[in-house]
């Protein structure tokens, strides 16, 4: 375990997350007693699931590199499996789908070897070309374009995008916790942005922002998320990141706007398929795709922002 290497910035954030969870659990428990008519069961379930997700994630950030990478790899695998199980697929593509699954551990192997060149082209070039080649050799042309594109889309979202979270941990760094602090910064702000958008939307939401894709998202919720995330980014950046104040504000903007895009993109997919949640894997939240949707945008955005400026 690497807990003894944790910087004060990491400890402060982890304690802050703990305090946030304790307070929200207390508030929701009391409200359930006092105002049973508000029907807060779903919210309570969601908070319990947050406890578990926060615990597992913090444990992973404090674990040795191989374990932390295996964890992110497993998240990618579960997300890809959920995606593949949701979309229409063809019997002829079973082997091509297996190839897509084999690409998951390979992508994280490149991360482990710190092979940036391979990491950045593997899914968009090699997986892209070879999986389609296999589908062509299989000889089934009916629905080929649809199937080929939807498999590649899933790989890009669930494997390529998410693996940027893992690459934070292997960026060349003098101090052992630099990358992991950035990863904590990214994931905490992305999730808090989701929660803030939801809460501000519930409290003040009037003007729909993208009614055809996600009728419940509002301009007020979006702005509340931006405000929360940017100010948190400003205060957290000195302890967790190398960012200067203006860069911290830019990072906060990237995360809140990117998180919104990721969220509505997954909403568009679900609306297209005619479903509400991707699955019932996480009580109160839906599927894993419903939870990582924002990260699929924020992880690559923040990664390349950071890499361009500092690594």
């Amino acid at each position: 375990m690497l807990f003894k290497l944790w910087t004060p910035g990491i400890w402060h954030l982890v304690l802050g997350i703990g305090a946030l969870l304790v307070v929200s659990t207390l508030v929701v428990t009391v409200l359930q007693k006092w105002k049973p008519q508000w029907n807060l069961r779903e919210v309570a379930l969601r908070i319990y699931a947050w406890w578990i997700m926060a615990f597992v994630f913090v444990l992973a950030v404090g674990a040795p590199l191989w374990a932390a990478l295996t964890f992110v790899c497993f998240v990618s695998f579960v997300a890809l499996r959920e995606y593949i199980s949701l979309i229409p697929t063809r019997k002829a593509d079973r082997f091509a789908l297996l190839m897509a699954f084999i690409a998951v551990p390979l992508q994280y192997f490149w991360v482990w070897r710190q092979w940036y060149g391979m990491f950045i082209i593997f899914i968009p070039v090699h997986a892209f070309l070879f999986i389609h080649l296999k589908m062509v050799l299989e000889g089934e042309t009916k629905g080929f374009l649809q199937a080929a594109s939807s498999i590649q889309w899933g790989l890009m979202i669930t494997v390529f995008s998410l693996s940027h979270m893992a690459y934070f941990m292997v960026l060349p760094q003098n101090e052992p916790m630099v990358g992991r602090s950035l990863l904590l910064f990214l994931v905490f702000l992305t999730q808090i942005n989701d929660v803030a958008q939801f809460c501000f939307g519930k409290a003040f939401g009037k003007t729909p922002i993208l009614p055809k894709v996600s009728p419940k998202k509002t301009v007020e919720g979006f702005l509340g998320g931006v405000l929360t995330t940017v100010s948190l980014a400003y205060f957290l950046a000195p302890g967790l990141t190398p960012f200067q104040p203006l860069q911290a504000i830019a990072a906060g903007l990237i995360i809140s706007v990117g998180g919104f895009f990721g969220d509505v993109t997954m909403s568009a997919v679900k609306r297209d398929l005619g479903i509400k949640d991707a699955s019932n894997l996480i009580p109160g939240h839906g599927g894993i795709l419903d939870r990582i949707d924002s990260l699929t945008y924020t992880a690559p955005f923040l990664f390349h922002f950071t890499r361009y400026l500092y690594f």
């Binding site: 695998f77 959920e82 593949i84 199980s85 079973r94 082997f95 789908l97 297996l98 699954f101």
Partner: peptide
């Protein structure tokens, strides 16, 4: 894992 196939593919 359908009938007559040897290749296993993860589906939920």
């Amino acid at each position: 894992l359908p009938k007559g196939e040897r290749v296993f593919v993860p589906f939920r």
